[in-house]
Simulated scan of single mutants.
Amino acid sequence: MKVSLRTLKYIGFSLVLMFADILHNGNLNLIYLFGIFIIFRFLIKKRYFYHVEIRYLIPFLSIVLMFIIFTDQPFSTIKMFVYFGKLFINIALLLFFQYNFSKKNIREGMKFILATLSLLLTLALIFHNNNIFWRLNDPFNSFSKTRLQLLFSEPSVLGLFVGTLLIFSFYSFLEFGIDRLCMIGVVVPLICLVLSFSLSAMVYTAIVILYLVAKKILKVIPTKKLNERILVLIILILMMMFFIMITENPVRNRVLAILNGTDGSFNFRWNAATQSLFSILEKTNYLGLGFGNMNTEYGRSILESVGMSDIFANSFLYFIAEAGILGVFYIVFIINYCIKNIRKNKYLGQDDCTELKQGLLIYVFISQIAGGYFTDPFIWCLYGIICAKNLKRSGLKI
């Protein structure tokens, strides 16, 4: 059977996504290799590549320059160079998806991704005591000791990935109804998400899905019935939350632990991190530890001096701790770039997937508050999709 080059590309990228984190090292994420490939294969020939790269890199280099000139803190030149390289690749990924995502057949891509995910899930269910597919006796989650992680570095990373698939599938369901592939796109990722017991991924996936449902309701109903439908929507959300809280389940137990202040993971990811961040900024004259410097002997000594036992498990706070107060402006710069592109494409009439893009932006933003790391290439692929031009709904039917 003859296989076209286009099909091979879909299969290749699907495998890259599914096996991206198999080496369990952020610097060796396979999506970085894909980014290097597209730099030399596609983007290096495009004029816009240099314009946007410069637009993103100048603020970053300004932060580095300010750190070097106005601080006498020790830093690793190699780590800073590696950080710069990862950011350069991530910008290339953003550009690739921004200018090429609309030209891809999403249905074909989802077929290969869901087929691979279904195969791995089946193997995981058969070999349910295997530490390759499962995290056994999880030391961090006291409510669910056995958690699905497949070939990802940890269950929360799997949760982020399958949550994205759920958002695309649910959007397709709302706009076009359900067919066999769309049903698989909802059921298989949902099973993976539940078995991962990643509360953070469940929460921000649910938030985006509720947002998409609300936007759909507000779009299709007559204006005169708007207040009544909004009231019904609010009641349904409250009923769902009430049902979750009155039944015995790991999600309820962990939510209660967070509210009571006894959840160690939440306390470490947010409470301890936010308190320590201000101390770190004061100690470094608000210039930060320097890119790549937190996970060094010097960086860890600063963390220990402010009461942190380990590096931050929070993308934005981690970035600000290393970049200093200027890191806040860089985060705002990136988010604003995404918002401007959403508005621009909608204003020009080039886009009728505004709700999906808005939902993905909410997803990316919340997920980086909950955890992850700033240079995660998967996140930057999502940034590119959010900024994509001519992303018509018909191309998103799965």
Rank of each mutant, 00 (worst) to 15 (best):
D138Q: 04
P139R: 04
P139M: 05
N141W: 08
N141Y: 01
F143E: 12
S144V: 10
T146G: 00
R147E: 10
Q149V: 13
L150D: 02
L150M: 03
L151T: 13
F152L: 04
S153Q: 11
S153C: 02
S153W: 14
S153M: 11
E154V: 13
E154Q: 10
P155N: 03
S156C: 03
L158N: 08
G159A: 01
L160K: 09
L160W: 15
V162H: 03
G163T: 10
G163F: 04
T164E: 05
T164K: 01
L166T: 05
L166P: 15
I167G: 06
I167C: 11
S169D: 12
F170Y: 15
F170G: 09
Y171I: 12
G177W: 13
D179K: 12
L181Y: 10
L181A: 08
L181I: 05
I184N: 07
V187K: 05
V187E: 03
V187H: 10
V188P: 14
P189H: 00
P189F: 03
C192A: 13
L193C: 02
L195G: 07
F197D: 11
F197M: 06
S198Y: 00
S200K: 13
S200Y: 11
A201V: 12
M202F: 12
M202R: 01
V203R: 07
Y204C: 10
T205F: 11
T205Q: 03
A206L: 09
A206H: 03
I207Q: 04
I207T: 14
V208T: 15
V208N: 04
I209H: 08
L210G: 15
Y211T: 13
V213K: 09
V213R: 06
V213D: 06
V213N: 06
A214Y: 14
K215V: 13
K216P: 09
K216F: 13
I217W: 02
I217T: 14
I217V: 15
I217M: 11
L218C: 07
I221V: 15
P222D: 08
T223F: 08
T223Q: 10
K224T: 13
K224C: 02
K225Y: 08
L226T: 15
N227Q: 05
E228L: 14
I230M: 13
I230D: 07
V232W: 08
V232A: 02
L233S: 12
I235P: 00
L236M: 14
L238V: 08
M239I: 14
M241R: 00
F242E: 05
I244T: 07
T247Q: 15
T247Y: 10
T247H: 10
E248R: 14
N249F: 12
N249W: 15
V251D: 03
R252H: 06
R252G: 00
R254F: 05
V255R: 01
L256W: 14
I258F: 02
I258Y: 06
L259G: 00
L259Q: 08
N260S: 12
G261L: 09
G261T: 04
G261I: 15
T262E: 12
T262P: 02
T262C: 05
D263G: 09
S265L: 06
N267P: 02
A273G: 04
A273S: 14
T274E: 07
Q275R: 14
Q275L: 08
Q275H: 13
Q275M: 07
Q275D: 10
Q275G: 14
Q275V: 07
S276F: 06
L277R: 03
F278K: 05
L281V: 01
